[in-house]
Amino acid sequence: MFDQPSNLAPQVETPVTTDHKITAENVNVHYGDTHAIKDVNVKIDDKTVTAFIGPSGCGKSTFLRCLNRMNDTIDICRVSGLIELDGEDINHAKVDPVQLRAKVGMVFQKPNPFPKSIFDNVAYGPRIHGQAANKAELDEIVEKSLRSAALWKEVKDRLHAPGTGLSGGQQQRLCIARAVATAPEVLLMDEPCSALDPIATAQVEELIDELRENFSVVIVTHSMQQAARVSQKTAFFHLGELVEFGETGQIFTNPHDSRTESYITGRIG
């Protein structure tokens, strides 16, 4: 299953040197004088949901934003170390962050639909990257993305209504559809359910599980139940360090590190 290229992904030469989608080695992040991420090493598999857990301020979101160079937009943030996507250094001078972000999509903590119609929200990425040759193809991408975000049935009759008029849960699924529409290879999700009620959360979680078929998903979450439900791999961050990384089942049932155990049993964080 690892070798099959996803039908949504653009043609990328897959190097044989690695089985991993993303490899991070000795990643350090500084915010001004603050050392936010300390020597993090992690390998993220393709077609897998990887969860980053840890108490607030532990650096999990910061690390997530390293993976598509969103930290470039923050002036005082400096990233060092090696991060490879399919064996290519994403921080290399010849890599265009704009191209990278088309391959590594992102869904944010708060639903942030653009002040446009539902259709235009989803069509935003494909239009920018010229992924649709004509209107019919664009319609198809939009429908497919909305279906994969489990939003199609609810909005198909009002595609031209403003995206901001949807409910919170619908807005977040719209943002997921928007990210899916650009056919990324990796989807980064920064606490995608923290602004949602339990029903919407369940829908989004179900969606994440389905997205795994096509994408590598990395999700930051505060809810350990959510990490346990949706992920196959879990990384536990604490005070900027990656404390433990392994199979989700192992992390939650048999953690090797005492800090991980303290956190999952609710004694820290």
Binding site: V98, R101, F114
Partner: peptide
């Protein structure tokens, strides 16, 4: 205009000027 909108657009691989023209200015 909320930073979240800019992040959303940049996160989809839009350039800063595309972000301004298509997201920030309409908002």
């Amino acid at each position: 205009v909320p930073q979240a909108l800019r992040d959303g657009s940049l996160g989809l691989g839009a350039t800063p000027s595309e972000t301004i023209r298509q997201v920030v200015l309409p908002a």
